[in-house]
Structures are given as structure tokens and as C-alpha cells.
Write a protein that binds this DNA or RNA. Structure first.
Length: 241
DNA sequence: AACCGGGTCAACCGCGTTTTG
DNA sequence: GCAAAACGCGGTTGACCCGGT
């Protein structure tokens, strides 16, 4: 047979995470890292499924997350990468340190998509929506509007934005900025190595553990821990401190 | 002050891929 | 090689917040 079931849906908590749950998860992952997500909730004393734990960690609790709105450069990079990769949010996120695929996806759907449409650019194809609404002309209005959109965030969020690298019609005053973004995007594209610092990923390196608490407890396999947990009779509510 | 509509984002769902026995 | 489960990803949902009326 294959693997054991991830989690029985019975008795698994859902919905928003509480501070207490966050605390448990952070405490556990920072101390032990994660070997397999299936084991995490049990060992951390959480009534969640591993999937939920993984999502909570990667999208919200990770210590290296930047939080907050995307910067202009990040936003432009997202657009460029989206033009090349499409809705491959995880791949796009991999090029943006401290950003999650969920965050980028949300930002795309709530901000960038609308901006591109306002600019007369199809957010899917990154081509002009129609020939009447040229990117250049619609851009000026879009710039004004999107500035008001972004009052809270950044002051130059639209500078240099053309919608995609396939859509090179930047006005001269934005050319240098665009070129800069293009170079960045191109270098990222050409470079298969992700620029994101992977050290946080908690496929924990030996150094991470030795600095935190000594040798890694996982040793590549956590099944023994589950067995151990079971033997101790901790059960689902067993807290591993 | 209350209501409404739009915006935001955390979390869930479902599916494809990868891994494991 | 196959089947089953874990994993990871992208799409979607729903609760909350905020500004406008």
C-alpha cells in the first residue's frame, strides 16, 4: 500500500487560526522544523490537518515574510513574470523574497489585474485589449486612477509599468525604469536559481538545527516520531514540547 | 448613525504531481 | 509497475474592514 492517510477529517479544526494555535505551530516549527506536514499538527498538539498547518506557515507565520503591500519594483516584476509564466504563482513567488504565492495571487487579482484592464491591457495575454485603447493613451488615465488606488501604499506605483515585457511601448521618461525592471526580470528568468533565500524553508539544514538546538531530530524520517508519539499515548492532543 | 458596496486577504477546496510501499 | 497517500499549486470563497452615501 501507499502512505497512511493525511488526516481523518473528523476532529480536525477548521477556520481562522487562533493566537494559541499560531504559537504552538511557530514554536514547534522553529524548534523542530518540519519533516512531513502530516506529522506536524500531531506533534505540535494541534487539531488541524497538515495541509492547513503548511498553508498557515507558508502564507502567514514564516519569519521571513515581508508583509504589507508589494513595492513598485516587486509589482512590476510580478507583471513581467506573469507575462512569461502565466498563473504560476509559486514560481513567481520564488523570485520575490519574502512573498508568498497566495499573497501575490491576491495582489494580482485585487490590484494588478484591475490596473492592467484600466490601462487597456489584457491581464491574461498582456496584449492590448483592443486597438482603440492603446496602452500609451490609456496608460495616462490609468496612472492617475491607480495612483488614487494606491494612496496608502506607494507614490510611484505605476512608473515604468507597461503591462509586460512583451508590450514594449514605454514612453521615454519611463524607459530607464522599465529597462531596469526588464534587466532584473531577464536575469531572474535566465537564472534558474531562485533568488529567494531558502534557508527558512525548514527542510532544515544541519546548521540551522545545530545553531538552534543541536543535531536535527528528524534525520530524514519522522515516522519513528509518530510511532514514539503513539507509544507515549499522547494521542491527537499530545503536545510535543 | 446606519446601511451598503467594494476591497482585501486568510483559509479552504479540488485537482494534478510526486512519493512511497 | 501499480496503487494509494502526501504534497503542492491554483482557483475560489467568505469574513472582515473601510469609505461613501
Amino acid at each position: 500500500m501507499g502512505r497512511q492517510p493525511c488526516c481523518d477529517k473528523l476532529g480536525v479544526k477548521r477556520g481562522p487560526w487562533t493566537a494559541e494555535e499560531d504559537k504552538k505551530l511557530i514554536g514547534f516549527l522553529l524548534t523542530h522544523g518540519h519533516c512531513c506536514w502530516r506529522a506536524v499538527p500531531k506533534l505540535a498538539g494541534l487539531l488541524r490537518c497538515g495541509k492547513s498547518c503548511r498553508l498557515r506557515w507558508t502564507n502567514y507565520l514564516r519569519p521571513d515574510l515581508k508583509r504589507g503591500l508589494l513595492t513598485d519594483a516587486e509589482e512590476q516584476l510580478v507583471i513581467d513574470l506573469h507575462a512569461r509564466l502565466g498563473n504560476k504563482w509559486s514560481k513567481i513567488a520564488a523570485k520575490l523574497p519574502g512573498r508568498t504565492d497566495n499573497e501575490i495571487k491576491n495582489h494580482w487579482n485585487t490590484h494588478i489585474k484591475k490596473k492592467l484592464i484600466k490601462m487597456g491591457i489584457d491581464p491574461v495575454t498582456h496584449q492590448p485589449l483592443n486597438k482603440k485603447a492603446s496602452p500609451t493613451t490609456s496608460r495616462s488615465t490609468a496612472t492617475t486612477e491607480s495612483k488614487s488606488d494606491n494612496q496608502k501604499s506607494t507614490s510611484h506605483s505605476d512608473e515604468g509599468r507597461t503591462g509586460s515585457s512583451q508590450n514594449h511601448s514605454s514612453p521615454p521618461d519611463q524607459a530607464s525604469s522599465k529597462t531596469c525592471h526588464d534587466q532584473l526580470a531577464s536575469s531572474l528568468w535566465e537564472d534558474d536559481l531562485p533568488i529567494v533565500d531558502d534557508s527558512w524553508l525548514l527542510q532544515p539544514s544541519e546548521e540551522d538545527y545545530s545553531s538552534l538546538m543541536g543535531p536535527s531530530p528528524w534525520d530524514g524520517n519522522c515516522e519513528w516520531l509518530l510511532e514514539f508519539d503513539h507509544d507515549l499515548g499522547l494521542g491527537d492532543s499530545g503536545v510535543f514540547h
